[in-house]
Amino acid sequence: MANATMMGPPAETQPATGVYNGKVGMWIFLGSEVMFFTALIGSYIILRFAHPEQWATPGQALNIPVTAVNTFLLICSSVTMVKAFAAIQDGDQKGLRMWLVATVLIGATFVSVQVYEYVHLAHLGLLPSGYREGSDLANAAASGVAWKAGPALPAAVGLYGTTFYTMTGFHGFHVTMGVLCMAFVTWKAFNGKYTVADHRGVEVIGLYWHFVDLVWIILFTIVYLM
């Protein structure tokens, strides 16, 4: 019943739309999230148009293969999320738990890989403020020689570092929040709180999860590939 009071309407009222409050609320909340990422992506577009020379050629500074695998993992987690939802719709408690655990684990892996990527990049010499002084990247950019089978690195990457860390960082923050909420839902699933008749928590967190996944596909495209 705890779940019902968290997401469901108080007793007596019939939702006017026929869709329960939690689901309507999550869709509305996601509207707000769209605007948040619009602000970030819009700023990215404006800054990049103003100073295209600060952007490194795709694949030069950022490791596309590693992130591509990471992207694939995140897409897989959307699939496991769908599986979890399908399982509880059939009343399959075991399946629900298994697929939820898988989703949590994949989500956590995604964040871990991102943290690893940050540490690696910072070591290599890309910071939110631009090149780290004395780093490999800074030296290569200063010498003007070709870097990693590509052209020479940009002389300055202040905006590149700024937008890269802010955009991927905020996405990572959203994934982290998603993993935490998902872990809570998983904990409740292990306590048998979801049934065929009422599994709203699973559906609502699923909506959020798919949204975060979708945002990443957009971010991966414009930040890494373009």
């Binding site: 800054l47 403020s129 300055a156 905006l159 570092g161 700024t162 802010t166």
Partner: peptide, 10 residues
Amino acid sequence: TNFFNPATGG
């Protein structure tokens, strides 16, 4: 970061 910093193109 350099969003609004004109010295680095913000």
